[in-house]
């Protein structure tokens, strides 16, 4: 009984905070007031203030975690609506996402190894742009640090979700296709979830980028990282 009550409070507080911030964001038209980020920060603050450990919070909000998977499946709906358009542009999509993955993995690895001189962290940061389960599997394969990968994935997701569209607009990247693909490639499901509030077309391209980037990274990352590690010794 106490467990049920406790689970109820965790979920209720999280959802209420999220809804209040979302309403506030809509009212003030403030993009920076991201409900996801603010709810995460509030939860961290509350857990720290009351000395509650993360496992307790995680257990009490596990129902939200269960809902994440069907929500990701739902991204297939906009993808279906734009499937024909995507098929016609398959080449541009494949080439841009592959080049993007190669460059991002290389720069992240080299930058990290030169700044921290730590191989495990460099592997983890090189894999941060893709969806968590695949990134963690490749991290393990390459002797990275899974905790750091998980951490960096959240930061990469929030970066694209909160600043993505604004940043791309600065470079006059205004086509829906370019915006969707870029955010799906750099900020995985978290960025794609944000796209779903903008338009179905954004979501469709973001979803295809999310899937393609995960597959291509799993295939090419081991080779690139082994080569760069060998060269930088």
């Amino acid at each position: 009984m106490s467990y049920l009550l406790f689970a109820f409070i965790g979920v209720l507080l999280t959802i209420t905070t999220y809804q209040v911030v979302a309403k506030l964001q809509a009212k003030l038209c403030a993009i920076w007031l991201n409900p996801m980020l603010f709810t995460i920060l509030m939860a961290i603050l509350v857990l720290t203030l009351f000395g509650i450990d993360y496992q307790t919070y995680y257990q009490s909000t596990i129902s939200l975690n269960y809902l994440l998977e069907p929500a990701i499946v739902a991204l297939g709906y906009p993808l279906y609506q734009h499937l024909d358009a995507i098929k016609k542009q398959w080449k541009v999509i494949a080439v841009s996402l592959t080049v993007g993955a190669i460059v991002a993995i290389s720069i992240s690895f080299l930058l990290t190894i030169s700044l921290t001189d730590n191989y495990a962290i460099s592997v983890s940061l090189a894999l941060k742009s893709i969806t968590t389960p695949i990134a963690l599997a490749v991290t393990e394969q390459l002797d990275g640090n899974q905790a750091i990968t998980a951490f960096a994935i959240i930061i990469a997701g929030l970066t694209g979700a909160i600043m993505g569209i604004k940043w791309l607009s600065l470079f006059k990247i205004d086509s829906i296709r370019a915006q969707g693909l870029a955010i799906g490639a750099a900020s995985h499901a978290l960025g794609t979830a944000t796209m779903s509030q903008i338009s179905y077309e954004h979501t469709a391209y973001s979803s295809i980028a999310l899937i393609y980037s995960a597959i291509i990274t799993a295939i090419i990352a081991p080779g690139i990282i082994e080569l760069l590690a060998y060269l930088s010794i």
Binding site: V92, I93, V95, S96, L97, V99, G100, V103, A104, I107, S108, L111, T112, L115, T116, N118, I121, L125, K128, S129, I148, F151, A152, I155, A156, T159, G160, M163, G164, W167, L168, F171, K172, I173, D174, S175, R177, A178, Q179, L181, A182, I183, A185, A186, S187, A209
Partner: peptide, 27 residues
């Protein structure tokens, strides 16, 4: 390593965003 990790993640995420975005936009 927090600050370094966040900075690297932030910068490289922006690079990836810009690269894919520009490529598709230009094509």
């Amino acid at each position: 390593y927090g600050v370094t990790m966040v900075l690297i993640t932030f910068v490289t995420t922006m690079i990836l965003l810009t690269l894919v975005g520009l490529w598709v936009n230009i094509s």
